[in-house]
Amino acid sequence: MIKGSQAKSIMVWLLLSAICLPLAGCWDQRELQNRHMVLAAAIDVVDGDVKESETFVEAHGGRNFRLSVQLLDIEPQEGEQGEGKERTYVISGVGRLFFEIMRDMFGQLGRPISWEHIQAIVISQAAVDYGGIDQLLDWFSRDAEMRWRIRLYITPGEAKPIIEYQPPGGEPNGLFLTGISRNYIKNPHIGSVQTELGYASGRIDNKIPIPIPKIELSGDIIKVGGIGIVKNGQVVGYLDEYETLGAKFIMGSEKSAIITTACKDHPDRVFALELYQHDTTLEPHVSGDNIYYTLDITVYGSIGEMQTCPEPNDHNLIDAEFLEKMEQQFAEEVQKTVVHAYERHQTLKVDSLGMGKKLQNKYPKKWIEIKDRWNEEVFPHVPLIVSVNVSIRHTADRK
């Protein structure tokens, strides 16, 4: 026989269970075919005529920017086992605020837009120069649907055609763009992962220069290579592929570089070393009013390719003496690359290498003295002492 207290307990548990039942599962779920997913966005400055479908009457006026988005649309197949068909297309809106432009885009669509899966944002240099990078990224940094891992690209030309590009492999453009960025591990000419939205927003908040991978559309080919440097909201210059490699060495973010050197006996023949491991130590030093850095790099790699010389027997990789000469040559090439990249940053008066952060961590009092003058006055004159050691672990000799 159930006592009164036990009956009350049972009733409470049943009531709680009944209350929890409606909360089970995804109560706010929305099927994939019932929404448009943004895969990529492009930001341009309005130049020329504006289509009627792109614009709207604004309370505070100004058709400053064009926001273009690539949408993934999934059409359901008939039958329970059928997979949905995927297609992508691009729509655009023109206005002053991206939040307002985005909401106005709903007038072009039959379903709401979802930003949770956006992969990349392509920004034209003209848009950065016109509005400043902090304004362009403000809404993307605030909106709850955005992710910090969104890839950023900057282009000297127009951004919209880049997200309209149809990849030869047939995959959606947004996935194609984020796939390119992952190739930084194998391609030393592509900026590292520290160029995503989260890193850029942090640098904006701390007033630190921002490196953004450069992307260009030439004919029917998209190419990512080099880095655009943004300081005080504006583009101050670009690093080419060679300078990008040197910058990645300084930051210790290089993963698999190809280092080349010319044969000293036959300068028209080139040898290549594939890096597969490296140790990098960058240290700031303060001596009175003098500031300098030391950079110690140890590279481990293997011979990847050798152009045949007229006397191939003179280049025997089994010979320890010749191998030591090769290691020295490759070390000189790495040092030359690093110094060139460092001097390029000094010429631009921009420290996107994180050297100021190193100084702040080790010498906080000194940093307080010079932080307001760091990029413009101090950094351009700070020496960098570079030491490189190369160890060839494998030669892949066929003999």
Rank of each mutant, 00 (worst) to 15 (best):
M1K: 07
G4M: 13
A7Q: 11
V12G: 12
L14C: 08
S17Y: 01
A18E: 02
E31D: 12
E31G: 10
H36C: 07
A40D: 00
V45Q: 01
S53I: 08
G62K: 05
N64H: 13
R66P: 04
S68V: 10
L71G: 07
E86T: 14
Y89F: 15
F99S: 12
I101C: 11
M102N: 10
G107M: 05
R111K: 09
R111T: 08
S114W: 08
V122S: 01
G131P: 05
D143E: 00
R151I: 05
E164M: 12
Q166F: 01
G170H: 07
P172Y: 09
S181H: 11
I190P: 07
I190A: 05
V193Y: 07
Y199R: 13
I221H: 14
I221T: 14
I222K: 09
V224F: 00
G225L: 02
K231E: 05
G233K: 01
G233Y: 09
Y238D: 03
Y242L: 11
Y242H: 10
Y242C: 06
T244L: 13
L245S: 09
G246L: 11
G252H: 10
S256L: 02
I258D: 02
C263Y: 03
K264W: 07
V270Y: 03
V270N: 00
F271P: 06
H285P: 05
S287I: 08
Y293K: 00
T298W: 01
C309T: 14
N316Y: 00
I318Q: 15
I318W: 12
E321K: 15
L323T: 11
E333W: 07
Y342P: 09
Y342I: 10
T347L: 04
K349A: 03
L353Y: 09
N361F: 12
K362G: 03
W367I: 08
N375W: 03
E377T: 13
P380D: 06
P383Q: 08
S387C: 06
S387E: 12
S391G: 06
